[in-house]
Design a protein around this nucleic acid. Structure first.
Lengths: 113, 113
DNA sequence: TAGGGTGTTCGCCGACGAGCGAACACCCTG
DNA sequence: CAGGGTGTTCGCTCGTCGGCGAACACCCTA
Protein backbone atom coordinates (compact mmCIF):
# COMPACT_ATOMS: atom_id res chain seq x y z
CA UNK A 1 0.00 0.00 0.00
CA UNK A 2 2.63 2.42 -1.04
CA UNK A 3 1.70 3.10 -4.62
CA UNK A 4 3.64 6.36 -4.62
CA UNK A 5 6.86 4.37 -4.49
CA UNK A 6 6.14 2.67 -7.81
CA UNK A 7 8.16 3.99 -10.68
CA UNK A 8 8.19 4.00 -14.42
CA UNK A 9 10.84 2.02 -16.32
CA UNK A 10 14.16 3.78 -16.37
CA UNK A 11 13.24 5.81 -13.33
CA UNK A 12 15.54 5.99 -10.37
CA UNK A 13 15.27 5.31 -6.67
CA UNK A 14 17.90 7.93 -5.98
CA UNK A 15 16.94 10.97 -4.01
CA UNK A 16 15.69 13.48 -6.52
CA UNK A 17 17.70 16.70 -6.51
CA UNK A 18 15.99 19.62 -4.82
CA UNK A 19 14.89 22.36 -7.15
CA UNK A 20 14.60 25.98 -6.15
CA UNK A 21 11.35 27.85 -5.91
CA UNK A 22 11.96 30.74 -8.28
CA UNK A 23 10.00 33.16 -6.11
CA UNK A 24 12.52 32.62 -3.33
CA UNK A 25 15.65 33.01 -5.41
CA UNK A 26 17.39 36.26 -4.62
CA UNK A 27 18.84 38.45 -7.33
CA UNK A 28 22.25 38.20 -5.72
CA UNK A 29 22.12 34.41 -5.98
CA UNK A 30 21.24 34.59 -9.66
CA UNK A 31 23.96 37.12 -10.47
CA UNK A 32 26.63 35.12 -8.66
CA UNK A 33 25.54 31.90 -10.34
CA UNK A 34 25.78 33.48 -13.79
CA UNK A 35 29.03 35.32 -13.14
CA UNK A 36 31.17 32.20 -13.21
CA UNK A 37 32.65 31.40 -16.65
CA UNK A 38 32.29 27.64 -16.26
CA UNK A 39 28.62 28.01 -15.37
CA UNK A 40 28.13 30.39 -18.28
CA UNK A 41 29.47 27.69 -20.58
CA UNK A 42 27.06 25.17 -19.11
CA UNK A 43 24.10 27.51 -19.44
CA UNK A 44 24.91 28.32 -23.07
CA UNK A 45 25.31 24.66 -23.95
CA UNK A 46 22.02 23.87 -22.26
CA UNK A 47 20.28 26.64 -24.16
CA UNK A 48 21.44 25.22 -27.46
CA UNK A 49 20.45 21.68 -26.57
CA UNK A 50 16.93 20.44 -26.08
CA UNK A 51 15.37 19.73 -22.71
CA UNK A 52 16.52 16.50 -21.06
CA UNK A 53 19.02 16.00 -23.82
CA UNK A 54 22.32 16.29 -22.01
CA UNK A 55 23.59 14.36 -19.01
CA UNK A 56 25.97 16.02 -16.56
CA UNK A 57 29.07 14.40 -17.95
CA UNK A 58 28.53 15.57 -21.52
CA UNK A 59 29.81 19.12 -21.18
CA UNK A 60 33.19 20.26 -22.36
CA UNK A 61 34.49 22.22 -19.39
CA UNK A 62 38.01 22.10 -17.94
CA UNK A 63 37.11 20.89 -14.45
CA UNK A 64 36.85 17.53 -12.73
CA UNK A 65 33.53 15.83 -12.23
CA UNK A 66 33.58 16.79 -8.54
CA UNK A 67 33.79 20.47 -9.37
CA UNK A 68 31.27 20.05 -12.15
CA UNK A 69 28.80 18.50 -9.75
CA UNK A 70 29.15 21.52 -7.49
CA UNK A 71 28.52 23.88 -10.40
CA UNK A 72 25.29 22.05 -11.22
CA UNK A 73 24.19 22.39 -7.61
CA UNK A 74 24.77 26.14 -7.76
CA UNK A 75 22.76 26.42 -10.97
CA UNK A 76 19.96 24.39 -9.38
CA UNK A 77 19.89 26.64 -6.31
CA UNK A 78 19.69 29.68 -8.54
CA UNK A 79 16.64 28.26 -10.27
CA UNK A 80 18.41 27.88 -13.58
CA UNK A 81 18.50 24.12 -13.80
CA UNK A 82 16.17 21.19 -13.46
CA UNK A 83 17.52 17.67 -13.24
CA UNK A 84 15.93 14.29 -13.72
CA UNK A 85 17.43 10.86 -13.21
CA UNK A 86 17.27 8.48 -16.13
CA UNK A 87 18.99 5.28 -15.30
CA UNK A 88 22.56 5.93 -14.28
CA UNK A 89 22.51 9.37 -15.86
CA UNK A 90 21.16 12.67 -14.66
CA UNK A 91 19.60 14.67 -17.45
CA UNK A 92 19.39 18.44 -17.46
CA UNK A 93 16.96 21.09 -18.52
CA UNK A 94 17.45 24.83 -18.52
CA UNK A 95 14.50 26.41 -16.67
CA UNK A 96 14.32 29.22 -19.14
CA UNK A 97 10.68 30.31 -18.95
CA UNK A 98 10.61 30.21 -15.15
CA UNK A 99 13.88 32.06 -14.86
CA UNK A 100 12.87 34.63 -17.45
CA UNK A 101 9.68 35.30 -15.55
CA UNK A 102 11.62 35.94 -12.37
CA UNK A 103 14.58 37.85 -13.86
CA UNK A 104 13.55 39.18 -17.28
CA UNK A 105 16.43 39.64 -19.67
CA UNK A 106 19.14 38.27 -17.44
CA UNK A 107 19.52 34.91 -19.12
CA UNK A 108 19.41 36.57 -22.53
CA UNK A 109 22.46 38.65 -21.60
CA UNK A 110 24.47 35.55 -20.81
CA UNK A 111 23.35 33.74 -23.94
CA UNK A 112 24.11 36.73 -26.15
CA UNK A 113 27.57 37.28 -24.71
CA UNK B 1 50.49 78.52 -23.75
CA UNK B 2 48.87 75.68 -21.94
CA UNK B 3 45.23 76.62 -22.11
CA UNK B 4 44.12 73.05 -21.53
CA UNK B 5 45.40 73.26 -17.96
CA UNK B 6 43.10 76.12 -17.12
CA UNK B 7 40.10 75.19 -15.07
CA UNK B 8 36.72 76.46 -14.13
CA UNK B 9 36.09 77.62 -10.57
CA UNK B 10 35.57 74.74 -8.22
CA UNK B 11 37.41 72.38 -10.52
CA UNK B 12 40.17 70.20 -9.19
CA UNK B 13 43.77 69.53 -10.04
CA UNK B 14 43.50 66.03 -8.67
CA UNK B 15 44.02 63.11 -10.99
CA UNK B 16 40.65 62.41 -12.53
CA UNK B 17 39.45 58.88 -11.87
CA UNK B 18 39.70 56.54 -14.80
CA UNK B 19 36.41 55.56 -16.35
CA UNK B 20 35.80 52.32 -18.14
CA UNK B 21 35.13 52.03 -21.83
CA UNK B 22 31.79 50.25 -21.86
CA UNK B 23 32.68 48.24 -24.94
CA UNK B 24 35.52 46.63 -23.03
CA UNK B 25 33.58 45.77 -19.91
CA UNK B 26 32.99 42.04 -19.67
CA UNK B 27 29.64 40.62 -18.63
CA UNK B 28 31.33 38.81 -15.77
CA UNK B 29 32.67 42.11 -14.44
CA UNK B 30 29.23 43.69 -14.57
CA UNK B 31 27.54 40.76 -12.85
CA UNK B 32 30.09 40.63 -10.06
CA UNK B 33 29.88 44.38 -9.52
CA UNK B 34 26.10 44.24 -9.19
CA UNK B 35 26.01 41.12 -7.04
CA UNK B 36 27.35 42.83 -3.93
CA UNK B 37 24.63 44.14 -1.59
CA UNK B 38 26.53 47.29 -0.63
CA UNK B 39 27.05 48.17 -4.27
CA UNK B 40 23.39 47.45 -5.00
CA UNK B 41 22.48 49.99 -2.33
CA UNK B 42 24.79 52.56 -3.90
CA UNK B 43 23.41 51.96 -7.37
CA UNK B 44 19.82 52.28 -6.22
CA UNK B 45 20.55 55.49 -4.33
CA UNK B 46 22.29 56.91 -7.37
CA UNK B 47 19.36 56.02 -9.58
CA UNK B 48 16.98 57.92 -7.33
CA UNK B 49 19.23 60.96 -7.12
CA UNK B 50 20.08 63.27 -9.98
CA UNK B 51 23.37 63.26 -11.82
CA UNK B 52 26.26 64.88 -9.93
CA UNK B 53 24.06 65.28 -6.92
CA UNK B 54 25.69 63.00 -4.40
CA UNK B 55 29.27 62.98 -3.13
CA UNK B 56 30.87 59.71 -2.08
CA UNK B 57 30.40 60.28 1.61
CA UNK B 58 26.65 60.83 1.42
CA UNK B 59 25.52 57.22 1.22
CA UNK B 60 24.09 55.30 4.13
CA UNK B 61 26.01 52.04 3.99
CA UNK B 62 27.50 50.15 6.93
CA UNK B 63 31.14 50.26 5.85
CA UNK B 64 34.09 52.54 6.49
CA UNK B 65 35.14 55.14 3.97
CA UNK B 66 38.09 52.99 2.95
CA UNK B 67 35.82 50.14 1.97
CA UNK B 68 33.38 52.54 0.39
CA UNK B 69 36.12 53.97 -1.77
CA UNK B 70 36.92 50.48 -3.00
CA UNK B 71 33.26 49.84 -3.87
CA UNK B 72 33.18 52.99 -5.95
CA UNK B 73 36.28 51.85 -7.80
CA UNK B 74 34.61 48.54 -8.63
CA UNK B 75 31.51 50.31 -9.92
CA UNK B 76 33.70 52.58 -12.04
CA UNK B 77 35.56 49.62 -13.53
CA UNK B 78 32.25 47.99 -14.38
CA UNK B 79 31.18 51.09 -16.29
CA UNK B 80 28.39 51.88 -13.88
CA UNK B 81 29.75 55.04 -12.38
CA UNK B 82 31.21 58.34 -13.50
CA UNK B 83 32.93 60.62 -11.02
CA UNK B 84 33.83 64.28 -11.16
CA UNK B 85 35.77 66.31 -8.65
CA UNK B 86 34.11 69.45 -7.33
CA UNK B 87 36.27 71.11 -4.78
CA UNK B 88 37.03 68.71 -1.98
CA UNK B 89 34.17 66.42 -2.93
CA UNK B 90 33.82 63.79 -5.60
CA UNK B 91 30.42 63.79 -7.19
CA UNK B 92 28.84 60.74 -8.75
CA UNK B 93 26.69 59.95 -11.72
CA UNK B 94 25.13 56.61 -12.65
CA UNK B 95 26.06 55.86 -16.26
CA UNK B 96 22.64 54.51 -16.96
CA UNK B 97 22.23 55.06 -20.70
CA UNK B 98 25.72 53.77 -21.50
CA UNK B 99 25.34 50.75 -19.26
CA UNK B 100 21.85 50.01 -20.58
CA UNK B 101 23.19 50.07 -24.12
CA UNK B 102 25.90 47.56 -23.25
CA UNK B 103 23.83 45.30 -20.95
CA UNK B 104 20.14 45.88 -21.69
CA UNK B 105 17.87 45.18 -18.75
CA UNK B 106 20.56 44.36 -16.24
CA UNK B 107 20.45 47.60 -14.32
CA UNK B 108 16.67 47.54 -14.33
CA UNK B 109 16.74 44.19 -12.54
CA UNK B 110 18.80 45.64 -9.72
CA UNK B 111 16.69 48.76 -9.44
CA UNK B 112 13.46 46.77 -9.40
CA UNK B 113 14.65 44.34 -6.76
C1' DT C 1 48.88 79.13 6.74
C1' DA C 2 46.82 76.12 9.96
C1' DG C 3 43.21 73.12 10.27
C1' DG C 4 38.97 70.41 9.32
C1' DG C 5 36.63 67.94 5.70
C1' DT C 6 36.73 64.58 1.92
C1' DG C 7 38.49 60.72 -0.38
C1' DT C 8 42.31 57.29 -1.73
C1' DT C 9 45.98 53.99 -0.82
C1' DC C 10 48.37 50.52 1.82
C1' DG C 11 48.87 46.48 4.71
C1' DC C 12 46.62 43.15 7.04
C1' DC C 13 43.01 39.80 8.34
C1' DG C 14 39.02 36.59 7.89
C1' DA C 15 35.52 34.50 5.04
C1' DC C 16 34.12 32.45 1.04
C1' DG C 17 34.30 30.03 -3.29
C1' DA C 18 36.51 27.22 -6.92
C1' DG C 19 39.55 23.61 -7.54
C1' DC C 20 41.15 18.73 -6.69
C1' DG C 21 41.49 13.57 -5.26
C1' DA C 22 39.44 9.91 -2.81
C1' DA C 23 35.68 7.51 -1.30
C1' DC C 24 30.98 6.37 -1.73
C1' DA C 25 26.26 5.37 -3.90
C1' DC C 26 23.61 4.03 -7.57
C1' DC C 27 22.45 2.00 -12.16
C1' DC C 28 22.82 -1.00 -15.90
C1' DT C 29 25.06 -4.81 -18.52
C1' DG C 30 27.85 -8.94 -19.08
C1' DC D 1 26.60 -10.77 -9.06
C1' DA D 2 30.82 -8.58 -10.54
C1' DG D 3 32.23 -4.69 -12.78
C1' DG D 4 32.27 -0.32 -15.47
C1' DG D 5 29.86 3.98 -15.91
C1' DT D 6 27.76 8.09 -13.80
C1' DG D 7 27.33 11.40 -10.32
C1' DT D 8 27.66 13.12 -5.31
C1' DT D 9 29.98 14.05 -0.99
C1' DC D 10 33.96 14.95 1.94
C1' DG D 11 38.09 17.09 3.30
C1' DC D 12 41.59 19.96 1.94
C1' DT D 13 44.22 23.86 -0.43
C1' DC D 14 44.56 28.23 -2.54
C1' DG D 15 43.30 32.58 -4.51
C1' DT D 16 40.17 36.34 -4.30
C1' DC D 17 37.28 39.62 -2.15
C1' DG D 18 35.23 42.48 1.56
C1' DG D 19 36.34 44.49 5.73
C1' DC D 20 39.22 47.55 8.76
C1' DG D 21 42.66 51.23 10.66
C1' DA D 22 46.38 54.20 9.63
C1' DA D 23 48.59 57.20 6.76
C1' DC D 24 48.51 60.25 2.99
C1' DA D 25 46.79 63.81 -0.50
C1' DC D 26 43.96 67.36 -1.69
C1' DC D 27 40.61 71.24 -1.12
C1' DC D 28 38.46 74.97 1.07
C1' DT D 29 37.88 78.29 4.90
C1' DA D 30 39.07 80.71 9.07
Amino acid sequence: MTPSTERAPGTSHRAAPEHANLDEVRLETALLALADPVRQTLVRALAEAGDWERPCGSFDVPVTKATLSRHFAVLREAGLLEQRDAGPRRLNRLRRPEFDARFPGLLALVLAD
